[in-house]
C-alpha cells in the first residue's frame, strides 16, 4: 500500500528542502536590498523630487486656476468645447464633494506614470519592432507583467524601496506599460511594406525611416496603446494606495475595511471621471492628427 501512495499523492519535494530554498532566496534578496537598497533608492531621487514638486504644484495652485489650465489644455489637445466643458463640470463636482486634494494627488501621479510609461514604452516597442529576437525576449516578459498579480511584484519592490511614492510609481508602470510597448511594436510592423520600401528606395536612412515614416504611420496604433496604458494606470490607483501612495485610492481602501459604501462610491466615481477625461482627450487628439488617413472630407 505504502509503495503506491505516489499514485494518489503528488510526489512532492521534501518539505525541508523546499523551506531551505525559500529561506535561501528570501535572505539572499534581503541581503541584496540591505546592501543596495539605498543606492537604488538614490537613483530614483530626481524622480521623487519631481513627483513631490508636481503634486505640490497642483495642490497649492488655486483651484480655479487649475481648472482653467486643465480645461485649456484639454481644448488645445482635442479642439472640442464640449470636452473642455465636461472637464470643468466634473472638476467642480469633485471639489464640491470634498475630493479635490486627493484628485490632484492622483492626477499628478497618473500623469507622471503615464509620461514615464510612454517615454520607456515607445523606445522598447521600437526595439521590439526592429528585431524578431528582441520581440521573442520581450513578449514573454510582457505576458508575465500583465498576468502576474500586482501584489506579487509589490513585495520585492517594497522590500527594496520601502513604502512610498516611488515604489507606487514603479508598480503602476510595471502594470500599465505593456499595452504601449505591444502596440508600438504592432503599429510599426503594420506599416505598409511598400511605403517602407519606397522610403528605402529613395535613400532614407534608418533614422529618417523611423521618424519620417514608421512612427507617424504607427501613431494611431500607438495612441490606442497609450490610451490603454492610461486606463490601466488609473485602475492601479487603489492597489498603489496600499503601499502608501496618497490619492483617491486611500479613501477607497478605507471604505473597504470600514464598509463605508458612499465614500467608496464617490471616490470611485472621481477615478472614473478622470479615466473618461483622459480617454476622450487622447482619442480626440489621435483622431485630429490622423484625419488625412481617411481623407479630409469624412473626418
Amino acid at each position: 500500500m505504502a509503495e503506491s501512495s505516489w499514485l494518489t499523492k503528488f510526489p512532492q519535494m521534501d518539505r525541508v528542502d523546499l523551506l531551505e530554498i525559500r529561506k535561501g532566496l528570501d535572505s539572499a534578496y534581503r541581503e541584496f536590498s540591505r546592501e543596495y537598497g539605498e543606492v537604488i533608492e538614490s537613483l530614483f531621487d530626481p524622480l521623487l523630487t519631481f513627483l513631490v514638486w508636481f503634486e505640490k504644484l497642483l495642490l497649492t495652485t488655486p483651484w480655479f486656476i487649475v481648472i482653467v489650465a486643465v480645461a485649456g489644455l484639454v481644448y488645445l489637445v482635442s479642439r472640442s468645447w464640449k470636452l473642455s466643458l465636461g472637464v470643468v463640470v466634473s472638476f467642480l463636482a469633485i471639489g464640491y464633494f470634498g475630493m479635490w486634494d486627493n484628485t490632484m494627488r492622483t492626477l499628478s501621479i497618473i500623469t507622471v506614470c503615464t509620461l514615464m510609461a510612454i517615454g520607456l514604452g515607445i523606445p522598447i516597442g521600437i526595439v521590439m519592432a526592429r528585431s524578431d529576437k528582441a520581440r521573442s525576449v520581450i513578449t514573454p516578459m510582457l505576458d508575465i507583467m500583465q498576468t502576474m498579480p500586482a501584489f506579487v511584484y509589490l513585495i520585492p519592490v517594497v522590500m527594496l524601496l520601502g513604502i512610498g511614492k516611488i515604489p507606487g510609481v514603479i508598480a503602476v508602470i510595471i502594470y500599465a506599460i505593456p499595452p504601449v510597448i505591444r502596440l508600438t511594436n504592432l503599429g510599426i510592423r503594420l506599416v505598409d511594406s511598400e511605403v517602407m520600401e519606397a522610403a528605402t528606395a529613395y535613400g532614407a536612412n534608418p533614422t529618417q525611416r523611423l521618424f519620417g515614416v514608421q512612427l507617424p504611420l504607427a501613431m494611431p496604433t500607438i495612441m490606442a496603446g497609450i490610451n490603454q496604458t492610461i486606463m490601466m494606470a488609473l485602475s492601479m490607483v487603489v492597489i498603489a494606495s496600499m503601499i502608501g501612495v496618497k490619492g483617491l485610492g486611500q479613501p477607497v481602501l478605507k471604505s473597504i475595511t470600514n464598509q463605508y459604501f458612499t465614500l467608496g462610491l464617490f471616490n470611485g466615481l472621481a477615478i472614473v471621471a478622470l479615466a473618461i477625461i483622459f480617454d476622450r482627450v487622447s482619442q480626440a487628439y489621435a483622431k485630429r492628427t490622423q484625419r488625412h488617413m481617411q481623407g479630409i472630407e469624412n473626418a
Binding site: E194, A198, A201, Y202, V213
Partner: peptide
Amino acid sequence: SMVFQRFGLMPH
C-alpha cells in the same frame, strides 16, 4: 528611383 504597384505613397 522607383515606382510601385500599389503606389507606395506616404499617406501622412
